[in-house]
Design a protein around this nucleic acid. Structure first.
Length: 159
DNA sequence: GCCAACGTTGGC
DNA sequence: GCCAACGTTGGC
């Protein structure tokens, strides 16, 4: 299967691009939405590339990029009674929630705010700018991914 | 903190 | 299987 591109949202107060840079990899735990889960379970392949989105941030936007480093496994938090992501319907034999492992690639030279994405005509098809789009994991078109990277990796001086 | 836009739950 | 009530997301 050819490589796919994704956007994954996280609240930087909880887990930011700097946390990912420090940890190198992370299990993308805590997704409790079936559509987002299905993307991780069924569609994500090792090597797929991921835009790292800071939601509930000031301002919200894209902070860097990463890659899928492991296929989906059962999300351990669904078995953890103390976790807010605990799910009493899940069992080890029949886990409900799955998550991939994501590996840090690079923090953008230039943070790309949501406002800036909205202003770019050639990024108009990106799902993240659509009104009411709450899905925390979204597919991204290759052309949009490449465009975002070229903006994000451009040195400040070239502005 | 507000609230629109969704997703989920549960009564019927 | 409908749909009202409720919960959550996330920009503003």
């Amino acid at each position: 299967m050819s490589k796919r591109y994704w956007l994954m949202k996280t609240e930087p107060d909880v887990f930011s691009i700097d946390d990912l840079e420090r940890n190198k990899t992370t299990l993308w735990e805590g997704v409790r939405n079936y559509q987002a889960r299905n993307y991780m379970m069924k569609d994500m392949q090792v090597g797929d590339e991921v835009l790292f989105y800071h939601s509930n941030a000031k301002p919200p936007g894209l902070a860097g990029f990463a890659t899928v480093s492991k296929l989906a496994v059962a999300d351990p938090l669904q078995f953890d009674k103390k976790s807010k992501y605990y799910d009493k319907k899940a069992t080890k034999e029949k886990p409900i929630w799955h998550c991939v492992e994501v590996q840090f690639k690079k923090k953008f030279e230039r943070y790309i705010s949501l406002e800036e994405i909205k202003a770019q005509k050639n990024l108009a098809s990106m799902l993240v700018i659509k009104k009411g789009m709450r899905l925390s994991i979204q597919p991204v078109e290759e052309k949009d991914y490449k465009e975002i990277l070229s903006i994000g990796l451009r040195p400040h001086a070239e502005k």
